[in-house]
Amino acid sequence: MTSKFSNILLAAALAFAGLLAGCDSAPPPTNLATAKQKAEQCVEPTAEMRRNHMGMLMHQRDATMLEGIRTKQHSLKECVNCHVAPTKDDGTPLHYGDEQHFCTTCHAYAGVKIDCFQCHADRPEVAQDPNYQHTVGSAEGHHFTQGVTAAAEPTAAEVQMVAQPQQGAAK
């Protein structure tokens, strides 16, 4: 009787350990290609983003709602603009319900249920604004704008280089 019970306990402990080990294994392959075309790094280091993006979003959400602070660095809208691309067959951006949606890839893996997209747009408004991606770094507070005044006009060669970003991102 006792040994049977301890066996069950042991099995449970092992299963739990296995679960923990599973948690330690490599995170799911999030699709960063879309965003990497626009910037080499996210608004914070990747490890920081993985762990704490929800806290930043929460903080930003209250700042925006209550105080009207609309900086872009931790804005959900900018996350979506940068990470969700028009990669569906019909040329429209993915929905949160789609497996390949940037947020979904990881949330499905981690078993996280969010209600952000009950209200918030889960994809950029490509049709209305073909230049939606340019909102990255287009206003105050975003890290891309720091030191903007010192930035020189890009040369024609540089423009050419950025216009074909896939070459850089592929390497």
Binding site: K38, A39, E40, H134, V136, G137, S138, A139, E140, H142, F144, T145, G147, V148, T149, A151, A152, E153, P154, E158, V159, M161, V162, P165, G168
Partner: peptide, 18 residues
Amino acid sequence: RVDEYRRKFVMALGGTAA
């Protein structure tokens, strides 16, 4: 170098908009 150029470009774009 490519990345640096790209960054500058993006900054400049941002700057104009800003």
